[in-house]
C-alpha cells in the first residue's frame, strides 16, 4: 500500500514538473482561476449587502459554507482530473496500455495529472474561510477545527467520487458526460448556500442522492451551534463527513464494474 503511494507521488512529480516548465503560464492560469471563482463570492457579498440576511443566516455563516465547498472542490479537481482524459483513452484504445501494466487503473489515472492551477480556487476558498472563521461569533475548539478539516476532506472525497463516476460513464457512452457537470458544478453552486433555502425535492436530492449536505449543512450545525429545523440529532452532525469518504469508496467499486465491462466487450 505504501509502495502504491510512493508510485503515485512519483507519477505526480512528473505531472508537476511538466506544468512548472511553463511557469508564467501556470501563474496566469492560477490567477485567472482565482478571479473566475472569486467573483462568485463577490456576487454573494453584493446580495448580502442589499438584502442584509438570507433567512436566518448571516453573510459570515454562509461564507463558512462557501469556504469549505470551494476548498473541497479545488482539491478534488486538482487530484482527480486525471480521470478526465479517460473518455479519450477509451476511444483511442490507449486504455489497453494501462491494463497491460501490473498496477491498478485507478492509481495510473489518478497519477496522470495533478492540476496545479486549481490552487486559484483553493486560495480564494481559504481566504473566505479564514475571514468567516475569524469574524464569526463562535467559540472555536479543537473539536470544531477538526470538524472543519473533516468536512473539507469529506467534501473532497465526495466531489472526487463524482468525477470518478463521470469518467466511468465513458465505458458505456461517449456522449452524455455533460450531465454529470450539473451535479458537480451545480453542486458547488448549490452548496455554497445553506441547503435549507432550497425547495424540498432539491434538498432531498443533495442530501440523500448526492450527499452534499454531509460535509456542508450538517457539520455546520455543529460548528455554528445551531439546532436543525429537521430534528437532526447532534451526533449526525459530527459524523456526517464520513459519508463523503464512503461515497468515494462506492465510486471506486462502480469504476471496477466499468473496467470489467470494458474487458468483456472490448472497446
Amino acid at each position: 500500500m505504501r509502495e502504491a503511494f510512493r508510485l503515485y507521488f512519483r507519477y505526480i512529480g512528473v505531472s508537476i514538473r511538466s506544468q512548472m516548465q511553463y511557469r508564467a503560464s501556470f501563474l496566469m492560469l492560477s490567477a485567472g482561476h482565482f478571479v473566475a471563482t472569486g467573483i462568485e463570492f463577490l456576487g454573494m457579498w453584493v446580495l448580502f449587502d442589499r438584502f442584509r440576511s438570507l433567512g436566518e443566516w448571516s453573510l459570515r455563516e454562509v461564507a463558512l459554507f462557501y469556504g469549505i465547498v470551494n476548498i473541497a472542490f479545488a482539491i478534488a479537481e486538482a487530484v482527480v482530473r486525471g480521470f478526465d482524459t479517460f473518455s479519450w483513452m477509451v476511444k483511442s484504445g490507449e486504455f489497453d496500455r494501462l491494463l497491460l501494466r501490473p498496477r491498478s487503473t485507478v492509481l495510473q489515472l489518478a497519477g496522470q495529472e495533478l492540476q496545479l492551477m486549481r490552487v486559484g480556487r483553493l486560495l480564494q476558498g481559504v481566504f473566505v474561510l479564514f475571514w468567516a472563521a475569524s469574524a464569526l461569533e463562535v467559540v472555536w475548539s479543537a473539536a470544531k477545527l477538526a470538524l472543519v478539516f473533516a468536512s473539507v476532506v469529506g467534501g473532497a472525497c465526495l466531489f472526487g467520487g463524482l468525477f470518478v463516476l463521470q469518467a466511468t460513464l465513458a465505458f458505456w457512452t461517449t456522449e452524455t458526460l455533460e450531465i454529470v457537470n450539473t451535479v458537480t458544478y451545480g453542486g458547488v453552486e448549490t452548496a455554497q448556500y445553506p441547503l435549507t433555502i432550497y425547495r424540498r425535492w432539491f434538498r432531498r436530492f443533495f442530501t440523500f442522492l448526492v450527499p452534499l449536505a454531509s460535509f456542508t449543512y450538517l457539520p455546520a450545525l455543529a460548528i455554528l451551534d445551531r439546532t436543525s429545523a429537521y430534528g437532526v440529532p447532534a451526533f449526525v452532525a459530527w459524523a456526517a463527513p464520513t459519508v463523503g469518504v464512503l461515497f468515494l469508496v462506492v465510486s471506486f467499486q462502480v469504476w471496477k464494474i466499468g473496467v470489467r465491462h470494458y474487458r468483456s466487450t472490448g472497446s
Partner: peptide
C-alpha cells in the same frame, strides 16, 4: 504495439524506463 508507444510522450526516454522499472517493481 508497433503503432502505439508505451513510453511517456513528454519525458526523456531514460525517465520512461525508470518509471517502468518502478511500475513493474
Amino acid at each position: 504495439f508497433g503503432q502505439r508507444t508505451q513510453l511517456w510522450w513528454d519525458l526523456p526516454v531514460i525517465e520512461s524506463f525508470d518509471l517502468l522499472g518502478d511500475i513493474y517493481r
